[in-house]
């Protein structure tokens, strides 16, 4: 199953962000979306997952448009999206946030698995504290835990996943992405930091246009 963008164009507030973007995310491939602030990276990712309608072009998953409801369901079942907003509720704990997300996405996890993933992410002892009291980086880790829970995912769409993470956190995530690619997953991500451990990515550059 591959995610394919065909001639995508995006117009925001009468400004053309990009035109005629075509690319394919193949299994085992990492696509690194580059561009200045305001070049349209987030808009492109949001078009890819179907939140924003492109001004022209379409997004295909496994060869069919994601606007079809059957394709949409399959795509949802195999997608993890982590955006700027982390979808971590400040009133719930890291454990509860993980459980809510897994239940909502139909991912069956045991309590032990949640605790062990949170431990992997360096959140030992913080599992039951409301996330509002954790730091930005720790909140980010709670959001990123989803990448460990949903084993059926085949596509990861990550918008600035490294924001607020410390050096160890970045390395941990890069290793996890590497393992996912080796299992045949495909990843598209944006980042303003250079990738330190991951290699073999394919750049996709968006130019800032006036």
């Amino acid at each position: 199953m591959s995610l394919e963008a065909v001639n995508l164009s995006c117009v925001r507030r009468d400004r053309v962000l990009f035109e005629q973007q075509s690319f394919t995310l193949n299994a085992g491939e990492l696509t690194y979306l580059l561009g200045e602030n305001g070049a349209g990276k987030t808009s492109l990712l949001r078009i890819l997952i179907g939140f924003v309608e492109p001004a022209a072009g379409q997004v295909l998953y496994g060869g069919s448009a994601i606007t079809h409801s059957d394709v949409r369901r399959k795509f949802n079942a195999e997608l993890i999206y982590i955006g700027h907003k982390s979808a971590v509720d400040p009133h719930a704990s890291a454990f509860e946030n993980s459980r809510f997300w897994c239940a909502q996405h139909g991912v069956s996890v045991t309590q032990e698995l949640i605790y062990s993933v949170l431990a992997t992410l360096g959140l030992v002892g913080l599992e039951d504290i409301p996330c509002g009291q954790l730091s930005a980086g720790q909140n980010r880790r709670v959001a990123l835990a989803r990448l460990w829970f949903k084993a059926t995912a085949k596509v990861w769409v990550l918008d600035e996943p490294f924001t607020a993470l410390d050096v160890k956190g970045i390395e941990l995530l890069e290793r996890h992405i590497e393992a996912f690619l080796a299992r045949g997953g495909s990843v598209i991500l944006t980042s303003h930091q250079p990738l330190s451990h991951l290699t073999g990515w394919r750049p996709l550059e968006l130019e800032y246009r006036l």
């Binding site: 949802n76 999206y81 907003k85 982390s86 979808a87 909502q104």
Partner: peptide
Amino acid sequence: NGWLEQLAL
């Protein structure tokens, strides 16, 4: 906090 985005998926 972005939960609605996750719900849409």
